[in-house]
Write a protein that binds this DNA or RNA. Structure first.
Length: 313
RNA sequence: GCCUUUGUAGCUCAGUCGGUAGAGCAAGGGACUGAAAAUCCCUGUGUCGGCGGUUCGAUUCCACCCGAAGGCA
């Protein structure tokens, strides 16, 4: 079976993914599929650095603004929708450019990981959370050790979230999540990705983050979050836990000053960029482009080596 | 000018009844298969402001100097 070629642009925040992706989309007759866990939300624009229509410059963007801020979303849904979109794009004889910084989304899509329909249940998860509060995480960890010792060994006892997910998976499917993970690793992906990312010196990247956050403030992040709060969206929602949103909410409700909130946004974004780097660093399929190079030119070379042709060639 | 408080890790500060020091934050590294902008793990030597004195030994006590904050003139 022929694999579907896809162009993937990943990397840390503020590395220049968006503008590179649009340039590439123009040259390669492509549509863009975002892989960003926050840009999927409507009304979260400034803080997520969502490209506006002018920036998109006529290029079709998918997986942006697809749900309301009070809705939950997950990788499983992401992957399911993205597969269909890519299929449609290909049927139009266009290229698909996947762009985003959410490593889990990128890898789940590119590696074509299976998410079963029946292995998740929010009520059960809530129930387990309650048990954790009452009896402590040790109790849950021991429970997991009995049903899935492999996962129990792998998971640190403080990582409540993952422990609960592992138990949840077993209760829903009757098989240990560790076993499921091993099986899905063997699966051959339907995609043939050409992966590109822009590499920055961290201090340079941090400078960009600093500037970018200042611009967000200038562009009215406070107002954006105020509107969200007025619409009734609260910090308990996933969307409002995004960097920039949770800190601004704290400021709006008076638990810190604006300066403190801005500083926290900068720190949070730095931490995020660092985590993204540890995620992407280990993927040896990625072609890293140094920020000092002519990025589009270099990307074009890489794509050419991988059999992609521009509109002009 | 005098009095008081203060000077310890990039920052905020503990501490050593004299045996050369430790937290939080920052920073660095790592993990990651249905919350992932989330969640979690690992990493702490720094002229203890300067110069002397006492002492076997001073960051700790004493004197002086320099810097900071406050008070009195």
């Amino acid at each position: 079976m022929d694999k579907t070629p896809i162009i993937v642009i990943s990397g840390p925040t503020a590395s220049g993914k968006t503008s590179l992706s649009i340039d590439i989309a123009k040259e390669y007759n492509a549509e863009i599929v975002s892989a960003d866990s926050m840009q999927i939300y409507k009304h979260l624009d400034i803080g997520t650095a969502k490209p506006d229509m002018k920036e998109r410059d006529g290029i079709i963007h998918h997986m942006i603004d697809i749900i309301d801020p009070d809705e939950n979303f997950s990788v499983a849904e992401y992957v399911e929708m993205a597969h269909d979109i890519i299929k449609d794009i290909r049927e139009k004889n266009k290229n698909a450019v996947i762009v985003g910084g959410t490593g889990l989304y990128i890898n789940s899509l590119v590696d074509d990981i299976d998410f079963r329909k029946d292995d998740s249940d929010e009520n059960l998860r809530e129930e387990l959370n309650k048990i954790c509060e009452e009896k402590g995480i040790d109790y849950l960890w021991k429970m997991l050790e009995k049903i899935d010792p492999v996962s129990a060994q792998r998971l640190h006892k403080n990582n409540t979230r993952r422990i609960i997910r592992a138990i949840e998976f077993y209760k829903m499917t009757g098989i240990p999540i560790s076993k499921h993970q091993e099986e899905t690793k063997k699966k051959v992906s339907r995609y043939d990705p050409c992966m590109i990312a822009i590499k920055w010196d961290m201090d340079k990247l941090y400078e960009r983050i600093e500037k970018r956050v200042d611009i967000m403030i200038k562009n009215g992040l406070e107002n954006e979050v105020r509107n969200l709060c007025e619409k009734g969206y609260t910090k308990s929602m996933l969307s409002m836990q995004g960097i920039g949103y949770k800190e601004m909410t704290d400021y709006i409700y008076g638990s810190c000053s604006l300066e403190e909130a801005v500083e926290k946004i900068k720190i949070g974004t730095r931490h995020y960029a660092k985590r993204q780097m540890t995620w992407f660093r280990r993927d040896n399929r990625i072609h890293w482009i140094d920020y000092r190079e002519n990025i589009l030119e270099r990307a074009t070379e890489i794509l050419k080596e991988n059999g992609y042709k521009t509109n002009n060639t």
